[in-house]
Design a protein around this nucleic acid. Structure first.
Length: 424
RNA sequence: GGAAAGAUGGCAGAGCGGUCGAAUGCGGCGGUCUUGAAAACCGUUGACCUUCACGGGUCCGGGGGUUCGAAUCCCUCUCUUUCCGCCA
């Protein structure tokens, strides 16, 4: 949620930034918010004055009672009746205006950073870096879903039986590879100073609102209505919400966390060839990094996080490129996002394996995550996060890119975790 | 699932319907002392809205009610803790 004060102070800037995100009817939406705020403040001031009168009379009555001047006290009581009615009326008006204002504010997306490229769809994202070399595969090379079947390492049919489509079963060396990747990612993050968290996999509604999954993306999360919980779509949700309602001190920055979790996504409305094999799942493993940072340093922190993610892919020997997302493709909550995509050699396509974002104060404002700055003032912190990394597509690319006639060669860095060097 | 207790400031923990935004302790900040630090002592220390300012208002888990007046009484919801049951 954007800060009301900022919107009021920087109306034109906010409008032009929201236009990068192709927000419809921005001018009217912003002006409506500003107008509602004015009304709310006016009503509040009136109600405050009435309330002040009431408080004063109540104090007088107290004093009169003490002195035993009952008649005068009764007379004073009579005066409060009209004030009460007035206050009630003003209060009702104010809460009506106030809820409209809240609703309009919360449904407004984050304003992208001015440097975010304009664009309509993912086609307009900008490639800002390309690393590694794409392998030349033999003519008889297979896509990962065939490799999974051939070596019996991921069983999609079995997942269908136990749960449904999009819930694959990892077996044998496939399961071991998955576990190795999780440990590798967690250890790398620990070495980079991230404190490990094992979060709950279900969260309450307040947490969903805090990071912005609710109310915007309710349909994308699995819900447990009986208990009012949601299955997490990413560890970002529970980990960032650790700091919901907290006041941290400036010298704690940067607060860096890493967590592995299963991620649950309904992926409503996405079907077709893109979802084949490990490309798109309803449940998948992911290691996520989350950083709470001082507003002055959040963009340099974003660069640090990109370096960390890039370093993982370098070590795994996967060719990848980095995209700066355009306004049309950036998420509701993000001010700037970089996507990392690895080259999947048999499918001959890029697969998104990480998304690194700066949310600025958007999430912090929703969850009231503040810090006391060196000037003694209370301010909203900046929140950032990134996948480091999402497992299934990494696995898909590793399997495809490293296949040889006598098996799939495992990257050097994973061998200590795997206990084998080849899937054959 | 059954029973009971509870929810107060950064934390711990008092609080009679009016003098409570709230005792006290810890922590934080400033100072005295010290070469420096610790200890001791003194002072100070909640958030939010509004106002140029003075000031005014809101907040003692959420919502509602009683009352001239509610942290304090009543209803309700949520959550937490303890005991029993069940169980990894």
């Amino acid at each position: 949620m954007l800060q009301l004060q900022y919107i009021k102070d920087h109306r034109d800037e906010v409008i032009s930034r929201l236009k990068i995100k192709n927000v419809q009817d921005v001018e009217n939406r912003i002006d409506s918010i500003i107008r509602l705020d004015e009304q709310r403040r006016l009503l509040q001031a009136k109600a405050d004055a009435v309330k002040a009168d009431q408080n004063r009379i109540a104090k007088e009555i107290g004093a009169l009672m003490k002195q035993g001047r009952r008649d005068e006290a009764e007379a004073a009581k009579a005066r409060t009746a009209t004030l009460k009615a007035e206050e009630k009326e003003l209060g009702e008006q104010r809460s009506a205006v106030s809820s409209q204002l809240d609703e309009q504010l919360i449904s407004l997306p984050n304003a992208p950073h001015p440097s975010v490229p304009v664009g309509k769809s993912e086609a307009d994202n900008v490639v800002v870096g390309e690393f590694g070399t794409k392998p030349e595969l033999a003519a008889n090379s297979l896509p990962h879903w065939d490799l999974c079947a051939k070596y019996d390492i991921v069983d999609f049919e079995l997942g269908n039986k136990i749960t449904g489509a999009g819930f694959p079963v990892y077996k044998g060396k496939g399961a071991r590879l998955q576990r190795a990747l999780i440990n590798f990612f967690l250890n790398e993050a620990a070495d980079a100073g991230f404190i490990e968290i094992q979060p709950p996999l279900m969260v309450n509604e307040a947490s969903g609102l805090g990071t912005g999954q609710l109310p915007d993306k309710e349909g994308q999360m699995y819900a447990v209505p009986l208990d009012g919980f949601y299955m997490i779509p990413t560890a970002e949700v529970p980990i960032t919400n650790i700091y919901r309602g907290e006041i941290v001190s400036a010298d704690q920055f940067p607060i860096k966390h890493v967590g592995y979790s299963e991620c649950f996504r309904r992926e409503a409305g996405s079907y077709g060839k893109d979802v084949r094999g490990l490309n798109r799942l309803h449940e998948f493993s992911k290691v996520e990094i989350v950083v709470i940072e001082h507003p002055d340093r959040s963009y340099s922190q974003l660069e640090e996080m990109k370096k960390h993610v890039g370093g993982l892919l370098d070590k795994l020997g996967l060719p990848y490129h980095i995209l700066k997302l355009c306004g049309g493709d950036i998420s509701f909550t993000s001010a700037m996002t970089f996507d990392f995509e690895v080259w999947s050699a048999a499918q001959k396509r890029w697969l998104e394996v990480s998304s690194v974002s700066n949310f600025e104060t958007f999430q912090a404002n929703r969850m009231k995550l503040r810090f006391k700055d060196t000037d003694g003032k209370m301010k909203l912190a900046h929140t950032l996060n990134g996948s480091a990394l999402a497992l299934p597509r990494i696995m898909a690319a590793l399997l495809e890119n490293n296949q040889t006639d006598d098996g799939i060669v495992m990257p050097e860095v994973l061998r200590p975790y795997l206990g084998f060097d080849k899937i054959a």
